[in-house]
Design a protein around this nucleic acid. Structure first.
Ligand code: NAD
Ligand code: NAD
Lengths: 210, 210
DNA sequence: GCATTATCGATAGCATAGTATCGATAGTCT
DNA sequence: AGACTATCGATACTATGCTATCGATAATGC
């Protein structure tokens, strides 16, 4: 499922070039995957292809978008307008998959009242009020780790049902609230381990520290 | 393995509070995991605990760090000093797990020669030269998607063995080079799907579009 | 028109990650 | 001291995702 957005990006490029038919083999070659894997991924979306021809590009795109929920716009708020928060606020990639960050919050009084990338920044105290008024259901945490739990609690109180957390710490959420934890350090660590492991490939054992 | 960095963060907090013993149950409660799962994760690092007592906090931290390769410093370069690139350049979380971004590159002549968060920014042409000279082996791509493949090729030419790509597109790398793909849109999409799926929980079927 | 080939979908087998069960051990309590 | 309990490690089981095999189908070429 995590591969579908990438397929989508690639297929959009093809569609723009006027290529209206695409086979799983083509996609697989592009990404170095097994064609079977790609076909299985695509089958998940309900798209059907025809033997020897493949899939109709635009049809396939529509299926992926529908499956991923990109057809309807989804709204979010963001808390913590630092470096990372500002980058997300300005990221235009969200809109192409139906997401929009409506408003940001920060507890720094210097930031509240300003605009970042065109988005209004409000004091943290107004979180609940604004979320309820706008009927937003998703919150993004890009504040320091030590405030993450407190912010998550506030978000739950504000009626949010989904939280996307970039702080490298655990937060507890009650049943019924979805927590999506982002962990960039983990990704980088895994890259480092794979590298180290590859170099000492001759050693047959697992990846053991030393 | 992706959970270990988070355990580490939590355990560091405990260690600072002077708690020198910790059981898998304690960790599990913190994260809402099964204690068995935690124990298995920890066992992977080679740490040994004692029945009824648990693990010695600092010993456990050392095992995790060693296993994750955080004991030795690892160096990287970054290409694309936009919003996201600048955030990463200024992120102090990397240093605590042994990573350091030495230098950044950008093809915008206005940026080259400046410093961002104290890190020098150089013109893209010097990538290969600098990487070879500094013997850097890991590159981070935070440039627009359409340039990602070109940059990846340059990185491979520059002798880099690991690439961390934030562009929402596929890049091809030859055998022997590790590609770690970051995909924030996919994470957000999954959050959105989980939410939608939860709401229509009564419907027994899979998560089908509509 | 008929063999050939690319591609699809379905089913089956394999690998890895997660979950459960069990005996062993070392503290705590009476 | 002896019963009790929390916790560990090992083993076995289950689920999920990935890979391989297979027959079916539709375009191409002779
Ligand atoms: N910068 C990165 O590249 C990066 C990478 C991975 C993870 N992270 C994590 O993302 C988070 C933010 O990182 P950053 O680099 O943007 O930090 P930053 O210091 O640039 O920004 C933090 C922002 O949060 C605000 N803030 C602090 N406490 C707050 C609170 N209680 N309520 C609301 N706002 C509050 C601050 O005013 C500041 O604007 C951190 O948890 C960090 O660990 C950052
Ligand atoms: N901003 C985000 O929150 C976010 C989130 C997810 C993914 N991304 C991805 O990360 C990448 C960067 O995003 P951003 O928001 O920082 O964009 P940005 O436009 O702010 O920055 C892009 C930077 O790359 C530089 N650049 C362009 N072409 C280059 C080339 N060929 N070589 C070297 N440098 C080049 C530009 O000069 C600019 O400084 C994009 O691919 C984007 O899709 C961004």
């Amino acid at each position: 499922m995590r591969r579908l957005p990438v397929y989508h990006h690639f297929l959009t490029g093809l569609a723009e070039k006027g290529i209206d038919r695409v086979s799983s083999t083509t996609v697989a070659r592009q990404f170095g995957y097994d064609p079977i894997k790609v076909r299985k991924d695509l089958a998940l979306t309900g798209a059907v292809g025809r033997p020897r021809i493949g899939f109709v590009t635009r049809e396939l795109l529509a299926h992926i978008e529908a499956f991923l929920g990109w057809r309807q716009t989804q709204e979010a708020v963001l808390v913590g307008c630092g470096a990372l928060g500002s980058a997300l606020l300005g990221y235009e990639g969200f809109s192409q998959c139906g997401w929009e960050i409506l408003v940001a919050f920060d507890n720094d009084p210097d930031r509240a009242g300003t605009r970042i990338q065109g988005k209004p920044v409000m004091p943290l105290e107004r979180l609940s009020e604004v979320c309820r008024q706008m009927n937003v259901k998703v919150g993004i945490i890009t504040a320091p780790a030590k405030s993450a739990q407190k912010i998550a609690d506030m978000m739950v109180d504000a009626g949010l049902r989904g939280i996307w957390n970039f702080a490298p710490t655990s937060v507890q959420v009650p049943e019924g609230v979805i927590l999506q934890q982002e962990n960039l350090l983990a990704s980088l660590t895994i890259l480092g381990l794979k590298l180290k492991n590859m170099k000492s490939e001759r050693k047959p054992g697992l990846l053991i520290d030393e």
